[in-house]
Amino acid sequence: MTLTPLNTSALPGVTDAVMNPAIRHRPADGFTTITLIIRRFDPETDQEPRWVDYDVDTLPTDRILDALHKIKWEQDGSLTFRRSCAHGVCGSDAMRINGRNRLACKTLVKDLDPTKPIYIEAIKGLPLEKDLVVDMEPFFASFRAVQPFLQSHTAPPEGRERLQSAADRARFDDTTKCILCAACTSSCPVFWTDGQYFGPAAIVNAHRFIFDSRDEEAEVRLDILNDKEGVWRCRTTFNCSEACPRGIQITKAISEVKAATIRRPDRIKIAVA
């Protein structure tokens, strides 16, 4: 049997673009082809992370998360990233998109420049595990260290909640919005070079209880953050405030914790451990 050259004009439905890769791929109506350049790392094969580019057809209203899903589902199933709710609440998919920490599920294609490649990499400062996934444990360890839970020595009225005035509630309203996505902490240049620093997110969550009128252990948290690696490490570069997908005024919150630490009388403490 002899092979004859394929006559494309004789095959209905087969376009030139399919048969001839030299002709550029044309996306369907309304879709644009965007290029994502993703910093990939497979610990089993790679010594160093490498940048890999993918072309994806997206609508302007698609989110970067949709584009990542398209790549994972249609082009390369090994692409690894975290996402849970996909609606900006769970804080799983913080990543560095075009050099800025954002949530992939809250970043629309039309808000970036789709004519240029979009660079995506894992958040910085935390150990890279695979592709866009980092080890969040150091981040959560700092969070736990500030005792982010209500502590009171008195019981609430029997069968009742602890009451709080609207003004007292408003005092720490901004810092209740944190979703622990680590966009702030991993945008902080101090944290990049000094992983011992508590980081903005831990201070935000300490702020949430320090200024809660129902809590009675503000002093303990101020002591914890008066550490060498505590609030004084902050250089007020405002990276955290810019990175926060919830719009929390993080640098302001850190300054309020600094001010609270200065205003209280200093207590000399001897190390126990």
């Binding site: 550490d227 004084w232 490490r233 403490k269 001897i270």
Partner: peptide
């Protein structure tokens, strides 16, 4: 439990960072 009978306390070495910052 709604109250902590003995909340954790921390002892930390005193440091000069606060005074450095004020200075």
């Amino acid at each position: 439990a709604t109250t902590l009978p003995a909340p954790r306390t921390v002892g930390r070495r005193r440091n000069i960072e606060k005074y450095g910052w004020i200075y």
